[in-house]
Design a protein around this nucleic acid. Structure first.
Lengths: 104, 104
DNA sequence: AATGTAATTAGCATATGTGCTAATAATTAA
DNA sequence: TTAATTATTAGCACATATGCTAATTACATT
């Protein structure tokens, strides 16, 4: 059994869309994607002009949304882009608007 | 010629993603969609539990993002969902993540 | 012109988000 | 164990977002 409640689907959409609202967080996802999906916090942070703790907080928000996952590797933290979740969450939401509902 | 500057594309992505961050604004877009794409401000507002001016402000944010357009009709304001812009803006951004960049 | 209807804008209070520096934790290397 | 490296957490300051009520605008009707 899992620990997921009935409302968590919507909550996750909320978290994902909120996470995507900030340009830096979207940029982090793109950097992750084009660097193969996995990078250490330091490699990510050095690509941005803001202070490291600032990037660190953005990374945590991304993690809490589920858009990235983290694992330790020695003293590094490796962030991993969750492509499926990104595509599915945003794509499924967008899909509601696909049908032409307007009466011709 | 148009009045669009070179950076407006990114600015609009920023505005669109910021507009989509709030659940009520996403809900407005869905309601608009499933009611044929056009509704008056009053028809929209009466479907939400918050005060009218609150909905009004959300509508303005949606308009400033380009996700909806407005026209007058007598004393009503008709909001119109801009489906293409929604699909294109979000879809094109999502498309960056389509290719499998990870080396096998 | 006066009144009613539809909707927005103004102004305020409070919550949330963002960014910084300083302090702390976790791990590795000397 | 001491020092260095990697990264996060704490705590603060400031900006932005959100929601309300009251006031205002714009148009239609009488």
């Amino acid at each position: 059994m899992n620990e997921i409640s009935a409302t968590d689907g919507l909550d996750q959409l909320d978290r994902v869309m909120a996470a995507l609202a900030h340009p830096l967080r979207r940029q982090v996802l793109l950097v992750l994607h084009f660097r193969g999906g996995e990078m250490s916090a330091g490699d990510i942070a050095e690509r941005f002009s803001c202070a490291w703790p600032t990037t660190s907080r953005h990374l945590r928000q991304l993690e809490e949304s589920g858009l990235v996952s983290v694992r330790r590797d020695g003293r590094q933290r490796i962030y991993c882009l969750e492509r499926e979740l990104l595509s599915n969450t945003v794509g499924n939401w967008l899909h509601w608007f696909k049908g032409n509902v307007r009466p011709k």
